[in-house]
Amino acid sequence: MSASVAQVLVEQRTHFVRRWTRTSIIGSSSFLVVAALLAVLPFMVNLSLVYSMIDLFILVILAMTWNMLAGYGGMVSVGQQAYIGIGAYSMVVLADSLGLNIFAAIALSAVVCGVIAIPISFLVFRLVGGYFAVGTWVVAEVVRLLVVQFPQIGGGAGISFSAMSDLSRDWRIATSYWIGLGATVIVVAACVLLIRSRAGLALTAVRDDMTAASTSGVMVTAVKRLVFVFAGAGAGIAGALIAVSTMRVQPDSVFSVQWSAFMIFIVVVGGVGTLEGPIIGVLVFWFLKQLLADYGPLYLILLGVIGIVFVLFVRGGIWGLISRKGRIELFPVGYNFSKKL
């Protein structure tokens, strides 16, 4: 191209684009400080709280990655439990049967789930909206039914995870906690880096308007596939952590659709399509769970009611209420136009 709009439009640079803002510097460093403080928690509080915190980490990972999928990519999946289950079983096979190091086994479980998500994406991407949701659920059920056919991995009864059974109970819980914390920091950082990247710009455009994104040159399907694989890998890590913390993988539990219900609740309440929302949503969910754990079904009914109220009246979730007056970013993912000094 000899002449182009570029040459006409580009004049002397009087402005520049900043990625970091004051709030994102504060937000990101607070995130790291909180993570560092959480690392010493097992020495300070009783172990039952530490143990329940592992659940919180698993939920953060699930909510963050489901939000990438649904909040940004517009793919409302209710079948992420497929990858939770595959991740959990991969963990058992890789760490117990093949004797891999725990960390390597978790990373590989994520890879296994990401790879399995690729062919599944070609299947479910033929569906949209509600059909996509049902389709992903069907895939998850199919995976569960396949897995229970294999007595080598426990069939319908499930299988124990014993790679960490040499450790004393206290050390096992503390170690699981640290593994969970580390994985959470890595997954949150991966989400932030993804949204901050070129692919993230495309994904944010897809979130706002898929058609307009396409007419602006975004390869929408490729971006959606990328995030589908990413979310599959994330759910795989969560599954691996479930195996580590509960020391047992039961098909009815890891492949339960309840995981998807929790993810939807968390993201809807926290704020869909934002990086901050799912973290807030997890805190709300986790505190409700601690408060209402003794009430059984009443607790689930209450969660449902809260979820419905948010969907109907608080579309942006809690983070939407907080940042209503203008955009606040706790992570450096936006582009800010500033005058040169």
């Binding site: 570029a6 944010t204 455009a205 706002d208 058609t211 602006s216 955009r327 936006g334 136009f337």
Partner: peptide, 21 residues
């Protein structure tokens, strides 16, 4: 059909990044 939640600059960056590569 702007990207409503993105800023004006970000809207344009989508086009310059992807359409103009």
């Amino acid at each position: 059909r702007p990207f409503l939640e993105m800023t004006v600059l970000e809207n344009l960056l989508v086009a310059s990044t992807f359409a103009a590569n």
